[in-house]
C-alpha cells in the first residue's frame, strides 16, 4: 500500500495575522506556523494502516516555501517514510485548482494507492484540494472521513453526514480521502522518531506555474456590526461586572 498524505502549513490559532501592503496576503514575518489541524489526523490515519500490517510506505507531500520543511520533518518524525516538498513562494496558491494541478503533476508517476488529506485548511479554507487532486488522478474520492478500513483491495470509509448521521461507503482503489478532525488520536513524535527523521529523504521539486482560475483580490478584517458590551478592568472588576450582568441583565436565576 503506497500512501500519500497532503500536509499544509498554516498560521497557528494564536499567531498574529497582519495583512501585508498588497492587501492580498499576510505579513509572513510575523506569523508562527503549525501543521494544519485536520492534516495531523490524515497523517495518523495513514500510519495506522501501515501499523495494522499492511506493507506500505507513507509519503508526505507539502507545497509551500522553505518553512514547510518543519511540518514535513514533524510528520517524518511520527513515522512517515519520506517526503516530497514542492517549493513555491507562498503567494503562489490561493487557488485549489492550481494547488491540485501542481500536486497532480508530481504525483501522477508515483502511482499512489491512497491519498489522505485534511478536510479543510485552517487558513484559506477551500475544503477542495484532496477531492480535486483525486479527480485529476482519476481516483475514487470521499470527504469527511471519520474512520477507514482497507478490505480486499478496496477501502471502506465511514463518512460524517449532516444532523448527526454517518454512512459507510466502499470504494475502489486508488482513492483520495479527506479526513475530518477527531477521526483518530494523532500520535506525538518520539525522541527516536525525531532523531530518525533527520536521515529521511525530502525530495525537493519545483513546478511550472499555470494560470489561476480564482484569486484573492483583497484581504481585510471584518467590521463588527453587533453592539457588544465589553466588560473590562482587573480580574476582580470583571468578575463583579459579570455577576451583575448575569444576575440583573440576563437574569439567570
Amino acid at each position: 500500500m503506497k500512501i500519500a498524505v497532503l500536509v499544509k502549513q498554516v498560521p497557528g490559532s494564536e499567531s498574529p495575522l497582519n495583512i501585508d501592503s498588497s492587501e492580498k496576503g499576510l505579513d509572513e514575518s510575523q506569523v508562527t506556523y503549525i501543521t494544519n489541524e485536520s492534516d495531523n489526523y490524515a497523517i495518523e490515519e495513514a500510519l495506522q494502516i501501515c501499523d495494522k500490517g499492511e506493507e506500505g510506505e507513507v509519503v508526505i507531500i507539502s507545497m509551500g516555501p522553505e518553512r514547510v520543511q518543519k511540518a514535513i520533518r514533524e510528520a517524518l518524525a511520527k513515522g512517515a517514510h519520506r517526503a516530497i516538498h514542492i517549493n513555491t513562494n507562498s503567494s503562489a496558491s490561493s487557488d485549489p485548482l492550481v494547488t491540485a494541478s501542481a500536486l497532480a503533476s508530481i504525483m501522477k508517476d508515483e502511482k499512489f494507492d491512497l491519498i489522505f488529506s485534511g478536510l479543510q485548511s485552517d487558513d484559506l479554507g477551500f475544503g477542495q484540494t484532496g477531492v480535486v487532486l483525486g479527480e485529476m488522478l482519476e481516483m475514487s474520492t470521499a470527504t469527511l472521513a471519520m474512520s477507514t478500513e482497507v478490505v480486499d483491495g478496496k477501502i471502506r470509509v465511514k463518512r460524517e453526514l449532516e444532523s448527526g448521521y454517518f454512512q459507510w461507503v466502499t470504494m475502489t482503489l486508488p482513492a483520495s480521502i479527506s479526513v475530518q478532525s477527531g477521526c483518530n488520536t494523532p500520535r506525538y513524535p518520539s525522541l527516536k522518531g525525531i532523531m530518525g527523521a533527520k536521515k529521511k529523504e525530502i525530495t525537493e521539486v519545483q513546478f511550472d506555474e499555470i494560470d489561476t482560475f480564482q484569486s484573492v483580490k483583497r484581504l481585510y478584517s471584518p467590521s463588527n456590526s453587533k453592539e457588544t458590551v465589553m466588560i473590562e478592568g482587573s480580574t476582580e472588576d470583571i468578575v463583579e461586572k459579570l455577576v451583575d450582568v448575569l444576575k440583573n441583565q440576563i437574569k439567570i436565576a
Binding site: 485549489p96 475544503g127 477531492v131 483525486g134 470521499a142 469527511l144 482560475f213
Partner: peptide
C-alpha cells in the same frame, strides 16, 4: 454549502476546470 456539496462539487470543478467559489 452543505456536506454533500463539499463532497462532490470540487470534483465537478476539476472535471470542468472551472473555479468553485465555495462557502
Amino acid at each position: 454549502h452543505s456536506y454533500q456539496v463539499r463532497d462532490y462539487v470540487p470534483k465537478l470543478s476539476a472535471r470542468l476546470m472551472k473555479p468553485f467559489l465555495a462557502d
